[in-house]
C-alpha cells in the first residue's frame, strides 16, 4: 500500500506538471480544435459529478446512505439556492456531526 501511495503521488505530480506546462507552449499560440475543446470542457462536470455521487452515496464498493449523505444534501440545497459556499459547507458539516451525535 505504501508503494502504491508513493507511485500515485509521483505519477500525479508528473502528469499535473506536464499538462500545466504543455498548454502555454503547445500550438505556438494557435487555437485548439473546437471539437477537442468541447470534450475537454465536459470532462470537469462529468468527473466532478462522479466524485460527488460516489462519495455521497457509496462507501468503497457498496452503495451506502449515511449521516454525511444528509449533510451534503442540505449543503446542496443551499448551493442550488445560490447561498454562499462557506455557509453550505458549514451546514453540511454541522448536520452530519449532529446526526452522528444523535445516533
Amino acid at each position: 500500500m505504501t508503494a502504491t501511495i508513493w507511485w500515485t503521488i509521483a505519477g500525479c505530480a508528473v502528469v499535473t506538471a506536464v499538462i500545466k506546462g504543455v498548454g502555454p507552449v503547445a500550438l505556438g499560440g494557435r487555437e485548439i480544435p473546437a471539437r477537442m475543446t468541447g470534450v475537454i470542457t465536459l470532462m470537469a462536470p462529468a468527473l466532478l459529478a462522479a466524485l460527488v455521487l460516489t462519495s455521497t452515496f457509496a462507501v468503497r464498493d457498496e452503495w451506502h446512505v449515511g449521516a454525511h449523505t444528509v449533510g451534503v444534501a442540505v449543503g446542496g440545497v443551499i448551493l442550488v439556492r445560490r447561498g454562499p459556499l462557506v455557509l453550505a459547507v458549514a451546514a453540511a458539516v454541522g448536520v452530519t456531526a449532529l446526526l452522528r451525535a444523535l445516533t
Binding site: 500525479c12 499535473t16 498548454g23 502555454p24 503547445a26
Partner: peptide, 19 residues
C-alpha cells in the same frame, strides 16, 4: 493517476489560452 490526468485535462486549454 489516470483519473488525476483526466481531471487535470482542463488545464490544457487554459494553458493554451494563456500562452
Amino acid at each position: 493517476v489516470a483519473a488525476a490526468a483526466l481531471m487535470n485535462s482542463r488545464f490544457l486549454p487554459m494553458g493554451i489560452a494563456i500562452g
